[in-house]
Design a protein around this nucleic acid. Structure first.
Lengths: 391, 391
DNA sequence: ATGAAAGCGCTAACAA
DNA sequence: TTGTTAGCGCTTTCAT
């Protein structure tokens, strides 16, 4: 069975003549001709090539390696001629500085570590992307670790980063982390730490969060302005900070408009799909059914919408809905979901910015706390009470 | 303005007495009391601590550092007593081996690099997650690079990885890459490379792909079996491999069931939302309108569905739709979208597996090509011609 | 302006 | 079983 060298498939291959004594093949999908490459072990062995070092350059030019080092770094005291000669030779020998060696002698790895609980949703990858961009721009590499929501793994992650002598660390804790010695180890060695999203109270370091409170306030206010009066809230697990802050924003919005805060209109949900459906059903089957719901996040809002549809409750005329986080699904569902957008990539960028500043300033650095702003995205699901869903 | 040390917000803070001469605050959102930490620069300076090395342990125990090294590595010839003594001391001094130094002497960094074109969709993060899991399990770190679909950035990325002496590299090329010297540089130094998703024909290395052809075949076959006869295809940009392979699967399915291949039922789309809408309109306004469409991916399928809804074309009774890639939105839309699922995380896992094997086997390694299987996920959007969308 | 030498923290061959 | 020594590739005094 011959595989196409491009698409790796077998089904579209036909023989197509002989070339230089070798069978030639054709893949009709990829529209390319090819012969099977013959790499002998000998060929491979050739590869195992020594990488050129400053010593190689020094020998080739018959000068000392210190001179080479200086020439490569645009040092002040260096003969322009030798400098160009060295740089030319470096190019010719295809020199790549060994950053490991440099890191060792400088005690600086130009690497930052990131510890995140997971990598499954779009949330953390996006944050990492943002952080990576900023880091790369400043010449830093990023080592990523997943704690898998396990305290033990998180401790192991921290040790890996420590052993790799990262210059700084970005952390979002697991939900089960209660001891912080593995974080304090960084501080002890002067390695700055910035927490984001899931922050650690006990550590006096920089933190980056999203202004959940304000987002929730704006969302609820929007519902009120659109005429809804009996507004419920599907909240998250009470233990989470976001839950408290979003609930708090919801509560204060009601207060601001002199609407009564009704305890029975708050339903806590563990964020699973199943429990979201349960919460939705609970709210929608109340005798005094709410005319709008502010949901702790978009997936919950979407489940609520699906339940409402099944119960033939019209959105937004009979039920206004607002979510939180602006997930792609919200745009597609009908009616489209009003939501609070969080600047996810900015969390990563800000955290990395702050971390780099901390690395540069070293002792003089003063920890800072940053709270990023949210944006209300108005779509059809909160169009107004009594109004028909247009389209 | 006092910020809560947990939530970084200002709005819920109240003063709450004095403790040890310092003002105490209370955050009613977080329900915690706190005083402002006072870290003087002096406090921080203390931190900048020397990390213990094997020499420190050696001195403390009055033995040589080689003995320490051996004890720490469970070397064969070592007195059990000294071994435990060393390990105990290592623990007490909080020893963390310096992996940079180790890498330098062993010429092995225990790090693999990944170069991906972007990080915005869920596709590449998921692959990276899979690769990272496998790597971490084997004690490898992962350095990630984004080429941003730019050839030049990709070259820079390759140099970064080279300079960091990674032990192997995972690559998905940019769409503008036409020269491959920066990849060949890895080979030249015996650093194994595995391509995934966007592979490079010119390099005789391992490759991991998804069986797009078979996925498309199954999808189209499914439509045929459900009674659709006039099946169109919204394809991707002709330059992409996935476009050709999915088109090829579509074509062969028609052939298998002796249905005519009609050129006018193929519409190419650049995958942007705008062009997806254009393609959808083009197909649905034909005199001889297709009764089903196999779409090159889910976002395109979703746009098609939205256009069809607007035109009051009933899905699936008047129009069957199948997408590709199983994105979350497909589950939420009504009717739910039938799609071909790709094992995204498996791509990363497989690629990393193959790479680690290549690293271990070094010269003896023979490049391999892997094509991962797809799964058809049947939902309502392809429910059958003339049938009503249930629910 | 350049070279010699020490050392970053570690491993490993060779002695003892 | 343990110590001695020589590097890995680089930077950085200190001489010259």
């Amino acid at each position: 069975m011959i595989k196409c060298i491009r698409c790796c498939h077998v089904h579209a291959i036909t023989k197509s003549g002989i070339v230089r004594g070798k069978q030639r093949y054709y893949c009709k999908d990829c529209n390319i001709y090819f012969t099977l490459p013959d790499v002998s072990a000998a060929d491979m062995r050739q590869h195992k090539k020594h990488m050129t070092t400053i010593v190689d350059i020094a020998k080739a030019l018959n000068i000392s390696k210190s001179t080479v080092s200086r020439a490569l770094h645009e040092h002040s005291d260096i003969n322009p001629q030798t400098r160009t000669a060295v740089q030319e030779m470096a190019r010719r020998l295809d020199y790549q500085p060994n950053l490991l060696a440099k890191s060792l002698v400088k005690s600086k790895s130009n690497t930052i570590g990131i510890i995140v609980p997971e990598f499954l949703t779009y949330f953390f990858p996006t944050i990492i992307m943002g952080a990576q961009q900023v880091a790369a721009q400043a010449g830093y590499n990023v080592i990523i670790c997943q704690s898998q929501e396990s305290y033990q793994t998180e401790v192991a992650n921290a040790n890996v980063l420590l052993a790799n002598r990262v210059d700084g660390v970005l952390i979002s804790m697991t939900k089960e982390t209660r001891k912080f010695d593995h974080f304090k180890a960084f501080e002890k060695h002067g390695i700055p730490v910035v927490f984001f999203n899931r922050v650690c109270d006990e550590m006096h370091t920089s933190k980056v969060l999203v202004n959940d409170y304000e987002g929730a306030l704006k969302a609820t206010e929007h519902l009120i302005k659109n005429g809804y009066r009996n507004i419920a809230h599907i909240a998250g697990p009470p233990a989470l900070l976001i839950t408290r802050n979003r609930l708090s924003g919801y509560r204060d919005a009601l207060e601001k408009y002199k609407l009564p805060f009704q305890k029975e209109l708050i339903v806590h949900c563990d964020l699973s799909k199943k429990d979201a459906i349960r919460s939705a059903k609970q709210l929608l089957s109340m005798k005094n059914r709410p005319d709008a719901v502010f949901c702790v996040n978009d997936p919950v809002a979407i489940q609520l919408m699906l339940v409402a549809k099944k119960l033939k409750i019209t959105i937004p005329s009979e039920l206004g809905i607002v979510g939180f986080s602006n997930e792609p699904s919200g745009e597609v569902i009908d009616p489209a979901l009003t939501t609070v957008e969080q600047p996810v990539a900015d969390i990563g960028r800000s955290a990395a910015d702050i971390l780099l500043k901390a690395i540069r300033q070293a002792e003089d650095y003063v920890p800072e706390m940053k709270s990023l702003q949210t944006t209300l995205i108005v779509r059809a699901s909160s169009g107004g009470i009594g109004r028909r869903n247009k389209r």
